[in-house]
Simulated assay, not measured.
Amino acid sequence: MVLVVLGIDALDPELVDDERHPHLTLTRHKRIETIDSHAGEPSTHELWPTIITGLPPSEHGLQLDDGVAWENPLLRYGSRAADYLLSDSLQASIGAWLLTNTGADAFRVPSSYYAENGLTTVFDGTDSTAIGVPNYVVDPDTEDREHSLRRELGDLFERDTEAVGGHTTADLPTFYEQCMEMSIVRTARARNALRSGRYELVFAYTSGLDLVGHVTYDRPDVQSQAYDELDRFVADVHADLGPDDDLLLVSDHGLQDGVHTHEAMVAGTDPETVDSIDSVLDVRDAIEAALAGGAHETAATVEFEHGDGRDDVQERLEDLGYM
């Protein structure tokens, strides 16, 4: 058995439809509770560490101040002084400028952070791979195409605290295409990991849907189109599953009218796993229970069942510069 978990940032339970999005709803789907940051809305920076540890942000320690990651290396040394000397609004403004103009990234805390702080994650003790999970960076010195695209967006995704969705874009069509490319990259990497036969847990994350949602508060048709395209990308992962494999989709929050909503969702091919999740705090336990209940065999003991095409995905990604 291989369990593939796709972390889809901002997948909103109110914006999926069983008939229109069969691969975003799968066999069963449901809305689940999420956690708000002290700023009043769910924070991606905080929630993915929560999902992989099963701990609230106050316990795993990765917390955001007014949307600015003061854990960021560019800010870390000044964060204590900033708390005393700068107002919250000025901290947010400085952080917004840094994130827009310096290539700083709020989501690049290394995976070593967890062991160093006595924290365990869903990846411990399993044959697993973590693909792009925010604030669980296995190799901080490398990046794939999604991360480099996000880091280099520039004026395609500018931080603007006055805008409805907190960001603006100088060119929506180009921005949209780059966001969809991000989702293609991560779903393709998940497919490659699944096909390799090396893992019992494949956990891949993509932020494309979230980014599109933040700038399309006045273009719901564009956000709807992104859901339709993502459904097709997930369909490819779904089609690669073997008879004993499962697929689980998890979001950290929803997103409507440009802003994060206070509900997340899960969807899966195994109804029992979906039913066991009522909150982002439950995801880790549900994944571990699913793995404990399945019999995973690696490629060393099982002949690959998906045909000779397993190398095609990796070769295509390498040719395109995605790996």
Rank of each mutant, 00 (worst) to 15 (best):
D66T: 05
E71S: 12
L85H: 00
G258W: 05
D36C: 14
E46Q: 13
G268W: 01
L149E: 01
V266I: 10
D275P: 00
A267C: 14
L47H: 05
V185A: 15
T34K: 09
V4D: 02
Y176E: 01
D127R: 10
V259W: 04
D127Q: 09
D105W: 13
Y205R: 04
D66Q: 07
R145L: 14
E272R: 14
T169Y: 06
P243F: 05
G54E: 02
E46C: 11
E143Q: 05
L24Y: 07
I184L: 15
A104W: 07
K30R: 15
T269D: 02
L153K: 01
E181Q: 14
L90P: 00
V164T: 14
I94E: 03
S79P: 00
A292V: 04
L90A: 04
T27D: 10
T126W: 12
Y199K: 07
D18P: 09
E19G: 14
D252H: 05
E143R: 08
V185Q: 14
E162I: 07
D160G: 10
D127I: 00
S58D: 05
L47K: 05
D231S: 11
L248K: 00
Y176Q: 03
E152P: 00
D246R: 09
H253D: 01
D218E: 13
P56W: 12
F233L: 15
L156S: 03
T298Q: 09
S128K: 03
A267S: 04
L3P: 00
P56S: 12
D311C: 08
S148L: 12
D236C: 10
S207C: 06
T161E: 15
Y114K: 06
M323F: 11
L149F: 09
E303M: 12
Q256R: 15
Y113H: 04
A190M: 10
D218P: 01
L291I: 14
V280E: 02
S89G: 06
E19A: 14
D252S: 02
T187G: 08
G197S: 13
G67C: 05
L62Q: 03
H260Q: 08
E41Y: 14
V280H: 04
Y113T: 05
Q225C: 10
L247K: 00
E143D: 01
G118H: 02
T298L: 12
W97C: 09
L209R: 09
L98S: 04
E143H: 08
A106Y: 09
D275T: 08
V138N: 01
E41F: 12
G118I: 10
V222C: 09
E116C: 06
G40H: 03
Y176S: 08
R189F: 10
G125L: 03
E33W: 11
D311H: 15
E41R: 13
E146V: 10
D246Y: 00
L75A: 03
Q91K: 14
I52Q: 06
L209Q: 04
E315P: 00
D105T: 02
D319L: 15
P57R: 11
E71N: 03
Y217G: 12
T216N: 09
G54L: 11
A292W: 00
T216G: 02
R186P: 05
D66L: 03
M182D: 09
G103Q: 06
E303S: 10
T301I: 14
Y77H: 08
